[in-house]
Simulated assay, not measured.
Amino acid sequence: MTDMSAKAAASTVAKAAATAHRLPHASIKPHRSSTRGHSNHGWLNTYHSFSFADWYNPKYSSFGSLRVLNEDRVAPQSGFPTHPHRDFEIFSYGISGELTHRDSMVRKGQEEGVNADQFYRVKRGDVQFTTGGTGIAHSEFNEHKTDPVHFLQIWAVPWKRGLPPNYHTANFNDESKRAAAEKGEFVNILSPLAAGPDATAAEESAAVPKIPGTIPIHADFGMGATLLAPQKTASWTVGLGQPGAVTQANKRKVFVHLPMTTKRQNNGGPGARIRLDGREDAILDEGDGAFVDLVNAGDKLTVESIGGADAEVVVLDTA
């Protein structure tokens, strides 16, 4: 190859790399599954992306208002007994199995006539959301006789303390996530409370989110998910994809998580794998996450499914 040909080839490679990296200003740092905290208590097998309970790592204390992301598996006929929460936004995202949420006032066998805020069986695609506020107590139990439950437990810091406690539940099924993936998109799951930090009691009760069809959260925060078949690509639009959906438009953060969803985790079968922003140093396997920093509202973070199984991708968009 002549010097001129070599230079031309190098230029072509450089241009391709620049095109692949659509967000050259962004910092993307993988958080490998092996660097998560892990505890197996028999009844609970849990992985912590951020410091939690008896596991502490100063490198992984929080990311913007995102404070906790635990990937939990709870054995049948076991779970978390009634316990209090306050001053956190806490939500469970169902992956498989069934997790029974009970308000502290609802006893087993007395569920008739109780609304979903007080008693709810979280299944795949369900999100059960709790505003701890001034104080709330509930239990989360796997009441199934034989099947384990697999879910994500996520906590965010609200924009102020002392909020009125509340619950919300909603389902975001596989069909909606696959349909979004076919269009190269994500399904919005959470968006900020439209009335903002100064919401009146009536506005708190109305609980209107910035984006219709989502669950309202008391933070400049959003959540989305998609279900990508192998060789498919989707883009998450930072700031939830709608003008005015978030307050802080610049220097936002996105945490990407790829849950452990396929049989690869059990018997060596093909697993899900994704690549972020076309970067070879930002390839995630199941259980991995990634810190995406220095991005702005309107930026498009591309996610490619490059593994042998469908990739269920969860994004958490925060200030």
Rank of each mutant, 00 (worst) to 15 (best):
43 W>K: 00
72 D>Y: 09
51 S>A: 11
84 P>D: 08
71 E>C: 02
68 V>N: 00
70 N>G: 05
81 P>E: 14
46 T>Y: 06
57 N>G: 05
49 S>P: 06
66 L>N: 01
73 R>I: 15
76 P>E: 10
58 P>G: 03
56 Y>Q: 13
38 H>M: 14
94 G>M: 08
60 Y>Q: 06
64 G>F: 02
91 F>D: 07
45 N>K: 13
31 H>M: 03
86 R>D: 08
35 T>I: 00
91 F>I: 04
86 R>W: 05
76 P>N: 11
26 A>P: 01
32 R>S: 12
92 S>K: 13
29 K>P: 01
70 N>Y: 04
84 P>T: 10
86 R>V: 01
35 T>C: 00
98 E>K: 08
108 K>C: 05
26 A>I: 00
54 D>M: 08
104 S>V: 09
36 R>W: 15
96 S>H: 03
107 R>G: 10
99 L>W: 09
31 H>W: 07
61 S>D: 09
94 G>T: 07
76 P>V: 11
24 P>Y: 04
66 L>T: 01
90 I>D: 08
65 S>C: 13
81 P>M: 12
108 K>T: 12
54 D>L: 06
24 P>S: 06
99 L>C: 04
37 G>F: 00
69 L>M: 07
81 P>T: 13
30 P>E: 00
67 R>W: 01
46 T>K: 13
27 S>W: 14
41 H>N: 13
37 G>L: 12
89 E>M: 15
95 I>D: 01
107 R>Q: 13
83 H>T: 11
75 A>L: 04
46 T>G: 09
36 R>T: 13
96 S>Y: 02
109 G>L: 05
107 R>N: 12
79 G>D: 02
33 S>M: 15
62 S>R: 09
44 L>T: 03
83 H>A: 12
82 T>F: 07
54 D>N: 11
42 G>Q: 10
67 R>E: 02
49 S>E: 11
47 Y>N: 00
78 S>Q: 07
79 G>C: 03
71 E>W: 00
53 A>E: 15
102 R>N: 15
52 F>D: 01
56 Y>P: 03
66 L>F: 01
107 R>K: 15
54 D>A: 12
36 R>I: 11
28 I>P: 09
106 V>W: 07
84 P>G: 09
80 F>M: 07
93 Y>Q: 02
99 L>S: 05
50 F>V: 04
30 P>F: 01
83 H>I: 11
97 G>K: 10
68 V>H: 00
94 G>W: 02
